[in-house]
């Protein structure tokens, strides 16, 4: 997760996560096309005005999802339930209701993606984990374990490449898909387990596993603007639901 320098990047990550998840939960119970569209549009506006997005960034990031948007819409429209038939051919059965449902679900997916992007594009990973300790009372043992594990993601990717090259250089070819799967999975997992054991011992030796009342280099707090963000985003969404229902 890379951060830009926008207003949204200064919002407390836990608070931001909580507000976005709440909006997503609200989206799950909304079955109206117009309201769903507006809530998605709200995310776009937040991104442009508070999240530091540019129009070209937005288009580049969201473009691939318009394909999925059409796919979801089509699946729901052609295979969904409904009475008022508009068009029927072979097993496709498009109805007034299924078109409505298709648009709702497709916009909901788009909104989920946009709120997700709003979070990941403005949140620093370390600050997020720190805020989980301070605001969500996650035990530091778990938080540091999590950070150590996340650090390994690029390492695993390079290890996978190394495995591939080692197979190639030794002329190892496996036709059997099942054996090939194990020939990659077993070394990956065993290396991962060995590494995790060493990391855990190193972390214990440095006192990272100890009690909760420790001090931190970085602390995160909830300020007025964090609460303000949560309340205003929820208020706008609820007003939209009430007006356009």
């Amino acid at each position: 997760m890379k951060v830009n320098h926008s207003f949204l990047a200064t919002i407390n990550p836990s608070c931001k996560l909580f507000s976005h998840v709440l909006v997503m939960l609200l989206l799950m119970v909304i079955t109206d096309v117009k309201v769903t569209f507006l809530i998605w549009f709200l995310a776009v506006l937040i991104g442009l005005f508070l999240g530091g997005w540019t129009i070209s960034y937005l288009l580049k990031r969201l473009c691939p999802f318009f394909g999925i948007f059409i796919l979801i819409f089509w699946m729901m429209a052609a295979f969904g339930k409904g009475q008022e038939t508009i068009w029927q051919w072979a097993w496709f059965h498009v109805t007034q209701e299924s078109i409505n449902h298709g648009l709702t679900i497709a916009f909901r997916m788009l909104a989920f993606v946009t709120y997700g992007l709003l979070f990941t594009s403005t949140t620093d990973l370390t600050v997020f984990i720190m805020s989980l300790i301070h605001q969500c009372k996650l035990s530091p043992k778990w938080a540091y374990g999590l950070l150590a594990g996340i650090r390994l993601i690029p390492l695993f990717q390079s290890e996978l490449n190394q495995l591939k090259m080692a197979h190639k250089v030794r002329g190892y070819k496996e036709k059997n898909g099942w054996k090939m799967f194990l020939s990659y999975a077993v070394p990956m997992f065993t290396q991962g387990i060995r590494k995790s054991e060493r990391i855990a011992i190193a972390m214990e030796a440095r006192g990272l596993s100890r009690a909760k009342n420790r001090t931190y280099y970085r602390t995160t707090k909830v300020a007025l603007k964090d609460g303000g963000y949560l309340v205003s985003i929820l208020a706008i969404v609820i007003v939209m639901i009430i007006i356009f229902r």
Partner: peptide, 20 residues
């Protein structure tokens, strides 16, 4: 209670699964 090595193991295995 979870031991440190169990926590890290759980996270590391989950991360590998997540990459998969």
């Amino acid at each position: 209670t979870w031991k440190m090595k169990e926590i890290v193991l759980a996270v590391v295995l989950s991360v590998i699964c997540g990459v998969i």
